[in-house]
Design a protein around this nucleic acid. Structure first.
Lengths: 187, 187
DNA sequence: TATATACTAGAATTATTATTCTAGTAAAGA
DNA sequence: TCTTTACTAGAATAATAATTCTAGTATATA
């Protein structure tokens, strides 16, 4: 069926994209320099800079959400607390992508020029996350606001205290748990 | 002593810079378009793009820190809680600058090309903030980590749940207070 | 009123970055 | 072996943005 792709696949590019985004900005020049692939190949694969950027963000969001949702929907009694802790844990196991998610803005990766299919995909993924939190709120009887703060905002705030520069220390986890329960106690 | 400056002073430029940064990226083209001033004037005043960017960040940091430190060092019993609440309150009263501080990265505004004096100034301001938190920690007997989380990280995390797009609701404040005390109770 | 000075104007230039385009190459299957 | 096809290469081009440069203008002071 014709020539196969070389070693470079989406994973390589999204990883490089994540690293570059974490350091500052992604330019095609730097992607080319880091991957060794040529501009032509990049355009052949992704159609535009926007396509590559969106892929990078999407890849990071999916990697995180997989873990977050597994905890949140585990059915365990402490599912919420574990989901809150998924954030600092993700930072330790998947640093580059965690930096993308916690230190960059989605708007750096998505624009009106982003390919339609990727735009739909990110909307779908975001909606899935939001729906899971809504379900958790309904199921536990807590307010949606409390859940968003305890599950997402406080954990994110905590890791951002360290993330672009330092490792996220284990000691943080107790504070994240406590903040989670403080939110649950409040609404 | 020669011609005076026109209406345009630092405040105007840092405000425009903040708005543009909040929306996406600051380019000299957009600054020119928004302020009506010419490129030549911009360079006459700030020497380089870096000078203008650094001024924007510095201005936002100082505006916030003034309020934060006033609360933290008020001597009141609930100084810490009030300092934690300074973040959501700042978001309501000074939205543009709050977006700069909470949604942008300092590294977008400072680079090796930033004028020396501004680099020193931001270092000084940052150190002053860090020192105040250390004093608070010592004075109250809490760990530095607990104080940084309760005073800075959790409040910031909370407002970032809303900030680039929405207003920060009043209802958040109770959660921020609770998260602050949860950190204090933990170390 | 003269003049020095601080500032303004914006076209021209340079730098950087994205994108296109033509000419390929390597491998799968007829 | 030949053809088709998916991919690779990278120079050329276009787009965008920063910076410089020359020629001013307005005003405070002498």
């Amino acid at each position: 069926m014709g020539r196969l792709s070389t070693v470079h696949d989406d994973e390589v590019f999204s990883a490089v994209g994540a690293r570059l985004a974490a350091e500052g900005a992604i330019t095609l020049q730097t992607v080319v320099a880091e991957t060794g692939v040529s501009v032509g190949s990049l355009y052949h694969r992704y159609g535009s800079r926007e396509g590559l950027l969106a892929l990078t963000w999407l890849d990071a969001v999916k990697a995180f959400q997989e873990r977050f949702l597994a905890e949140l929907e585990s059915g365990h009694e402490d599912a919420g607390e574990c989901a809150a802790l998924a954030t600092p844990r993700f930072c330790r196991s998947d640093r580059q992508r965690a930096i993308v998610l916690s230190c960059c803005r989605a708007s750096e990766f998505f624009s009106p020029a982003t390919p339609q299919d990727l735009q739909k995909e990110i909307t779908r993924v975001n909606a899935a996350g939001a729906a899971a939190i809504r379900r958790y709120a309904k199921h536990t009887g807590h307010s949606l606001e409390a859940c968003r703060l305890g599950l997402v905002a406080f954990p994110l705030g905590a890791v951002r205290l360290y993330l672009p520069a330092r490792a996220v220390p284990e000691a943080i986890d107790d504070y994240v748990s406590a903040a989670f329960w403080s939110a649950m106690g409040n609404g």
